[in-house]
Design a protein around this nucleic acid. Sequence first.
DNA 1: TTATTTGCAAACTCTTTGCAAGCAA
DNA 2: TTGCTTGCAAAGAGTTTGCAAATAA
Lengths: 144, 144
Amino acid sequence: MSSPIEDRCLQKGLKMTEQRRVIARVLSEANDHPDAAEVYQRAADLDPRISMATVYRTIRLFEDCNVLERLNFGDGRVRYEEASREHHDHLIDVKSGKIIEFQNTEIERLQREVAREFGYELVDHRLELYGIPLSGKQTASEEQ
Amino acid sequence: MSSPIEDRCLQKGLKMTEQRRVIARVLSEANDHPDAAEVYQRAADLDPRISMATVYRTIRLFEDCNVLERLNFGDGRVRYEEASREHHDHLIDVKSGKIIEFQNTEIERLQREVAREFGYELVDHRLELYGIPLSGKQTASEEQ
DNA sequence: TTATTTGCAAACTCTTTGCAAGCAA
DNA sequence: TTGCTTGCAAAGAGTTTGCAAATAA
């Protein structure tokens, strides 16, 4: 039983050890944005033969292979998510910590425009919105 | 000779030591986005009686008083800039590391709209654009 | 078989903290 | 004077690395 991340590693010719398979599965199955310690926790639950050092080495390997994306919401923890998924930005609920993923093509278009105004071609961007729930309103998402 | 940050600290009733005055001046005079080590370097050049611990404590103090803003461009270094200045976002030249500050009210409006769609009131945001210079073009800014 | 990967523990980097001495108000 | 601030060195948190044993291909 392989995971999407494992498949991408195989395509790239990486040697797949049991530890890497487990970590790939943890990351593929994560619907949230775990940090290294959380990845280790979940991987160790599946297979206790995994060490923290291997988690760090594997995370870095996956990053270098562009199968994993590093997130940094400025709270001191580096978090990760699968990189193969469709592009999106993040809306963070500052009360609960809940993270909502969204896309907005109009904002993306304006970003390219801003970059071009300054003489640049946009190659990447990072957009995070921080919000508090509107009073008396149900939030529009149930994602974690 | 006081600096804008020192003035704001005095308004807030902070006890101003020589160390705090020097660090405030370093931060007020910085046109770039120094990290803690760079702040220490510049402060120690002005007054060798300053320790790294004091730099960290003072940076935190200034942050808590909202005279200093924490930046995180995802390169593993936490950087700072004076918080009293007008709001802006950052365009990072990935070739040279140059950082350009910009404002775009249309993007900001769309951000509030996105947040509201999900049932949130936008309280903060972080937007960073990463670009490479358009070939054959002069970049539109000389800022560092 | 053999080059790569792993676990362990030590090392490293960045940041925070306890404490006695120093200083601003 | 007196409570806040400092420098120092030690402690923490998070991450990386050297090395011998284990393992995928």
